[in-house]
Amino acid sequence: MDLYSGKTALVTGATRGVGRIIAEHFLSEGASVIGFARGEPSLTAAAYHHVQVDLADPMAIQKAFLGLHKQITRLDIVVNNAAVLTSQYAMIMPPAAAQAMVNVNLLAPFIVSREAAKFMRKSKWGRIINIGSMAVSLEPIGDSVYAATKAGLSTLANVMAKEFGPMNVTCNTLGITAIESDMLSQLPRDKIDAIIAGLPVPRFATAADILNVVDFFAAEASSYVTAQTVFLGGVN
């Protein structure tokens, strides 16, 4: 039997990068997948439903959930993956770029999680997984706001774990290291290579590394695992 047969999962930022990898994995393991993203869909599977939504806009997210309430009756797994990154020295970081990171990387996961929890409380089962970053621990120059928003994701999950625990909903964070993606291509390659070289496991993350932990957090057997942050590659 497929790992996610009968489950409905929502993945934000599902059109590319890590979000697309996770969405494809859920689909291949039998789940119905809802993708939230600003752009056009890049997946065409029959079990994939794309919702075009600007995750920087809380009201737009709420409207997207209003639409979901008319189409689905349960939502089992949420992966808050969508993120934007502007890496820049704090003194010259454009405030609009900082605001966008707060909105997409932190506020959107809050709104998505709380709206998803309204589904999960009915079925008394849910898994909320936030995609964090090694930047939380490594605190690279230029990533002040990005790292702060990703650190906030763990705190968000930890508090929600307390609020949603009685509903059998777990909330965890996966802190990923660098993986080949559009976001990575925005950063200087030498800077990334230097960071990777300093990791206990000095290599880039693979899709399998990420999916291994996503599957662990989402598993039925992980109902006693909540408010945890797992970093890949030996970051701590």
Partner: peptide
């Protein structure tokens, strides 16, 4: 909230 939102089609 959910019932009102569904009935009046607005958050």
């Amino acid at each position: 909230e959910t019932a009102l939102t569904m009935r009046w089609d607005a958050p």
